[in-house]
Design a protein around this nucleic acid. Structure first.
Length: 200
DNA sequence: CCTACGATCTGCT
DNA sequence: GCAGATCGTAGGG
């Protein structure tokens, strides 16, 4: 069995959200909510958002109460409510003052699939369990209560379990649902594992 | 204060 | 394939 360690702060605090977004593929998100079983999954799909020059980013050229979290130092969660129903989980990157973040769009279940099925109201494991940004958040028990949470804490954290992802296994495409961003909508900042069923 | 709408998902046609 | 759900946020009056 390979090593398993929590990702260090410096992993997130680089001035290159696109590289962080790619390198997060293969890492493992873990949660332990309300002292229950640990639930976790391998990140299979991400999207990069850059506050400085990307119109698709919530923090693009503006600082508001909601986006303030993205301006903090990397290594914390940015969770927001989408369409009044879905809690979307993002990982804040870069240094304080630079509002960059990675949206996690899908995971492949690893630990605690029983609890994940309960949270999703499902009775059999399938990609519907965790493939999709709203779905994985619900499966892991992540809500806006966890906005600004430090990703090295014992409730919500990200591990490197030694899975090696080669460049050849990564596919890039444009991001989902950001047509409003005009030219920036064309940026190839969505990344996912090729031939992995757990992709949205 | 008021209005419009969104980094989505589900169920029904 | 499409409409409805459902509410916080942002921006305008």
């Amino acid at each position: 069995m390979s090593r398993s360690k929590i990702l260090p702060k410096q992993f997130y605090r680089r001035d290159d959200v696109v590289s962080v977004s790619r390198e997060l593929l293969g890492k493992v998100i873990c949660t332990r909510i309300d002292g229950k079983t640990v639930t976790s999954g391998i990140i299979t799909e991400t999207e990069a958002y850059c506050g400085r020059n990307d119109k698709a980013c919530h923090a693009y050229q503006k600082r508001t109460p909601r986006t303030e979290v993205m301006y903090r130092s990397g290594g914390i969660a940015y969770v927001y409510l989408c369409y009044g129903i879905h809690h979307l989980f993002n990982i804040v990157t870069n240094i304080e003052g630079q509002a960059d973040a990675v949206l996690v769009r899908a995971i492949q279940p690893v630990d605690g699939t029983g609890l994940m099925l309960d949270r999703r109201g499902m009775d059999a494991v399938s990609p519907k369990l965790t493939a999709g940004p709203g779905r994985l958040s619900q499966a892991l028990g992540i809500t806006t209560d966890y906005n600004a949470t430090d990703l090295a804490e014992k409730t919500l954290w990200i591990e490197d379990r030694g899975l090696d992802i080669s460049e050849g296994e990564i596919e890039a495409s444009t991001r989902i649902g950001v047509e409003y961003a005009g030219k920036d909508a064309k940026r190839p900042w969505r990344f996912y594992l090729k031939e992995n069923a757990w992709v949205s």
